[in-house]
């Protein structure tokens, strides 16, 4: 089939799920407003019409219950996809996620498996305040037993979703609201991409070099890939050639691609929409330094939310989120070109 079709991330996710549901009767979806509504962020649009209420189940507002049920169903041979509407809501149901989904394979000595997908919306930038704007990448990536992915575009979203559904381990699929291509929320143009109509998978733990460059390495994922690309385009005008790496998954983390890039550029900027301390930015820098501290020609820079809850008011929220300008400024610092 032609691949000149440009899909939004939300439609790519829904298509990936539909393709798996057509071929694998053990796949089903449940969550709040995922049926008639099609998911608040569009990730299940059209599934109810095709597959019916048994396999596309609207749930009560009972996350501990239905995510726990997802664990049980997965251990009983199904492949559930459960949606946690906003990742911020993990507070009411984390026990089911990190003490059950993430640990049961290990506790059973590998005798049980939990092949479930927890898909959840992340990210801010649209004034939804501190309980509806977090990414919490590191919170999930920190806890062993879950694979964690966070795509930046529709092609990756479709392939990673299919891989997540087929994986025998629990996978947390973190999709950024601002990348979904929803008619009612601004989205970067590049998030919508050409998407093949047939099913395909992308492997976890393989970062993508979005832009090759020789002067500095920008490592990031999800929405911040687009901000980093904007920064790279601005830097190019100043003669700075930045390499931009989209990690695509946090667990497993493709340290090899990062190391190869830093070996080439000698300079590292890490960008994350999560909180700054104890997070992805530190993990990436530590991964480089513990391998070879000599790789870096200058202290690395990191941009992330400065350890405050995401504020509601627009000027304050925009201040705490990394953007193209702050990324470019940090990049210039690593290059000793700060104005």
């Amino acid at each position: 089939m032609s691949s000149n079709r440009q899909l939004t991330v939300s439609r790519a996710m829904a298509e990936a799920i539909a393709l798996e549901m057509r071929t694998d009767p053990s796949v089903f979806v449940m969550g709040e407003d995922i049926g008639t509504y099609g998911g608040i962020f569009g990730a299940t649009a059209g599934l109810l019409d095709e597959f019916g209420e048994e396999r596309v189940r609207d749930t009560p507002i009972s996350e501990t219950g239905f995510i726990g049920a997802g664990v049980g169903a997965a251990m009983a041979g199904m492949r559930p996809i459960v949606e946690l509407m906003f990742v911020d809501f993990f507070g009411v149901c984390m026990d089911s996620i990190y003490n059950l989904a993430a640990k049961n394979t290990y506790f059973s000595g590998g005798n049980c498996k939990v092949p479930m997908v927890i898909m959840t919306a992340t990210g801010g930038g649209y004034s939804d305040a501190g309980q509806h704007s977090q990414t919490l990448h590191a919170t999930f990536a920190h806890l062993p037993g879950m694979k964690v992915v966070a795509p930046s575009n529709a092609y990756d979203a479709k392939g990673l979703m299919a891989a997540a559904i087929r994986d025998d381990s629990p996978v947390v699929f973190m999709f950024h609201k601002g990348l979904q291509g929803l008619a009612w929320m601004a989205s970067p143009e590049e998030a919508a991409t050409a998407v093949p109509e047939e099913a395909y998978t992308l492997p976890f733990g393989e970062a993508r070099v979005v832009r090759a460059g020789k002067d500095v390495t920008l490592v990031t994922l999800s929405m911040m890939v687009h901000r980093a690309m904007d920064a790279a385009r601005a830097l190019e005008k100043d003669g700075i050639d930045a390499e931009v790496i989209d990690l695509r998954s946090l667990v497993p983390l493709d340290r090899e691609t990062i190391l190869q890039s830093v070996a080439k550029t000698g300079r590292l900027v890490v960008v994350d929409e999560d909180y700054r301390s104890y997070g992805l930015t530190a993990e990436v820098i530590a991964s480089v330094v513990e391998k070879d501290p000599g790789l870096l020609k200058a202290p690395p820079q990191r941009l992330a939310v400065p350890d405050v809850p995401i504020p509601y008011s627009r000027p304050m929220e925009q201040f705490v989120l990394p953007n193209a300008e702050t990324i470019a400024a940090a990049t210039r610092i690593t290059l000793g070109k700060a104005g």
């Binding site: 004034s127 939804d128 305040a129 501190g130 309980q131 509806h132 809850p309 504020p311 509601y312 008011s313 627009r314 000027p315 304050m316």
Partner: peptide, 15 residues
């Protein structure tokens, strides 16, 4: 989202 708001704009309508 204004400075003279109950929480100086940190919370917004849900907080």
């Amino acid at each position: 989202g204004k400075k003279s708001g109950l929480s100086g704009g940190r919370g917004g309508h849900m907080h």
